[in-house]
Computed example of a mutant assay.
Amino acid sequence: MKKTARREAMGGLAKGLEVIRAFTYDSPSLTLSEIASRAGLPAATARRCLLTLAELGYVMQSGRNFLLRPKVLELGAAYLDSMNIEVLTKTYLEDLARQTGDSAALTVLDGTHIVYVARTSVRTLMRLEAHVGSRLPAYPTSMGRVLLAGLSPERLQEYFEQAEISALTERTVTDRAKLRALIDECRRVGYSAVEDELAYGVVAVAVPVFDKTRRVVAALNSSSHSKKMTRAKLATERLQLLRSVSAQISRELHRVPGLSLSAQT
């Protein structure tokens, strides 16, 4: 029985998983030789695994180094959903939702989209409801603009070269110069607020979440319905609370390395 199971095992899959596991909190960026050594694989095999993972969107290359991309989180989406990232969500996001009476979410940037890694809500605002693993375009969202503001100039330029930007509502900002100005403003003031740009009825304010080197690795938001709350009022009433919760989550992220690998260089 054991020999049969062994014959049916997929060696290539096992090697690919070993390559992913080579990355750690202390070593989020590795060279090919370092990955091969940590995974116990020949360099040529490790390279084939990395090229496959890169093609599938799980790994990216920056110079001689490789980094995991947030899409890796999708591999554990079921686990994350069942656990609901317990420490972060129950301790912080649920408290934030209760205090505001609305929803709260945590996202990371993956290419031209944001990916939800935690979310909680005390009410259903509308038909468009995100969940762990949901992907939304970055440009019309408060969290997306916060994450874009954390990019280097080179990465931001790459984003605008790759992003497909179109109007989702009559209020969606699609002019790239205006979007750059909004991202610059977000970087300057430390938050972003949007209203009716992703969908009618959605108003949200977001702040950055940092790793221990003050790199933006995630975005935290509080959202409501635009018929109940304007963008300006939302920012005025919730910005201080969001920043306080962000500081607490930033400290928690030091112990959750998987969420700090947004590859924003």
Score class of each variant (00 low, 15 high):
residue 190 G to D: 06
residue 1 M to P: 03
residue 135 R to N: 04
residue 75 L to Q: 11
residue 70 P to S: 07
residue 103 S to A: 10
residue 72 V to G: 07
residue 117 V to A: 13
residue 9 A to C: 09
residue 157 Q to I: 01
residue 150 G to K: 03
residue 247 A to R: 13
residue 88 L to C: 12
residue 225 H to F: 06
residue 187 R to H: 02
residue 173 V to W: 03
residue 227 K to C: 13
residue 53 L to K: 07
residue 55 E to F: 14
residue 69 R to Q: 14
residue 142 S to D: 00
residue 212 K to R: 13
residue 33 S to D: 13
residue 207 V to T: 04
residue 93 L to W: 02
residue 164 E to S: 10
residue 121 S to F: 03
residue 7 R to M: 01
residue 215 R to F: 03
residue 84 N to M: 13
residue 77 A to M: 14
residue 176 R to L: 09
residue 96 L to Y: 06
residue 182 L to I: 03
residue 50 L to T: 01
residue 225 H to G: 01
residue 248 Q to F: 08
residue 197 E to W: 10
residue 192 S to R: 05
residue 161 E to S: 12
residue 133 G to C: 10
residue 52 T to R: 12
residue 49 C to W: 04
residue 117 V to R: 06
residue 78 A to L: 12
residue 198 L to I: 12
residue 246 S to I: 07
residue 166 S to N: 09
residue 235 A to G: 01
residue 239 L to C: 00
residue 93 L to T: 04
residue 112 T to A: 05
residue 22 A to R: 02
residue 102 D to A: 11
residue 5 A to I: 00
residue 212 K to D: 12
residue 259 L to A: 12
residue 166 S to H: 15
residue 22 A to G: 04
residue 136 L to E: 13
residue 47 R to H: 14
residue 34 E to N: 05
residue 61 Q to S: 05
residue 116 Y to E: 05
residue 93 L to R: 02
residue 64 R to S: 10
residue 246 S to D: 02
residue 121 S to A: 14
residue 235 A to H: 01
residue 196 D to C: 04
residue 128 L to H: 11
residue 257 P to S: 06
residue 139 Y to H: 14
residue 99 Q to V: 03
residue 13 L to A: 11
residue 25 Y to S: 15
residue 63 G to I: 04
residue 121 S to R: 12
residue 84 N to P: 03
residue 262 S to R: 07
residue 25 Y to M: 11
residue 207 V to M: 01
residue 44 A to G: 09
residue 56 L to M: 14
residue 119 R to Y: 10
residue 56 L to P: 03
residue 155 R to A: 15
residue 163 A to L: 01
residue 19 V to A: 10
residue 243 R to D: 04
residue 134 S to W: 05
residue 232 A to R: 09
residue 164 E to T: 08
residue 92 Y to P: 00
residue 253 L to E: 06
residue 13 L to S: 09
residue 250 S to R: 04
residue 125 L to N: 13
residue 112 T to E: 09
residue 244 S to M: 13
